[in-house]
Amino acid sequence: MAEAFLLIAAATGATLLLTVSAALIGIVLGAPLVLLAQSRSAILRGIYTVFVHVVRGVPALVWLFIAFFGLAELGIVLPALASAVLTLGIIAIATMAEIYRGGLAAIRQGQYEAGWALSLGRWSLAKDIIFPQLFRAVSPTTATYIVGLLKDSALASIIGVPEIVYVTGLEVQSLGHGLELFLFAGLIYLALSIPLGVVSRVIHVRLTRRYAVL
């Protein structure tokens, strides 16, 4: 039993790896995607809307199976871990783009106008005025979403990625004690998400204490 707990705890690394990689993919690649939503071209905006609705309208498990079983059928054989990162990463891109879109919508028109009236260049307007406010507007939502990704990463167990839930399942299969072991697995998730929540709350409070809330 003690050994099972240790093995499960050790699998936390894989869970964090999945979570962090997917989060980074989403945070980085969601930014160019949201530019599509801001485009003047109705076609580009349409592509954005369809992409976001399709990616988020289908359960992650379906994408995971497509990435793991489906692509293999087409001759693209990905390891389970890569399939899981790819799947969670693409969903994270769509979700982060939506979070960015919401953050941009929260920035008042007057901020752009003040920048234009001061003759600020496009780059300066983006870098000095919009981005810092966007960052503050999206960080709480992003933190919440990363906690969501942490839980979504459990999906990877279904295709055999040795993260927390997969290892727990193996141990339960050989030892029994399903209740204790799955509760222990659950406690790890709680233990991981509580600090993230606290950190995001502290950041949020610190930012809002000083700056006007958007």
Binding site: E113, A114, W116, A117, L118, I129, P132, R136
Partner: peptide, 20 residues
């Protein structure tokens, strides 16, 4: 447009200060 704006300063009804 830029040349014109370089000549002008604007004060807004809603201030539009940069909050950050």
């Amino acid at each position: 447009v830029l040349a014109i704006r370089r000549h002008t300063g604007m004060v807004f009804q809603s201030f539009n200060l940069f909050p950050h």
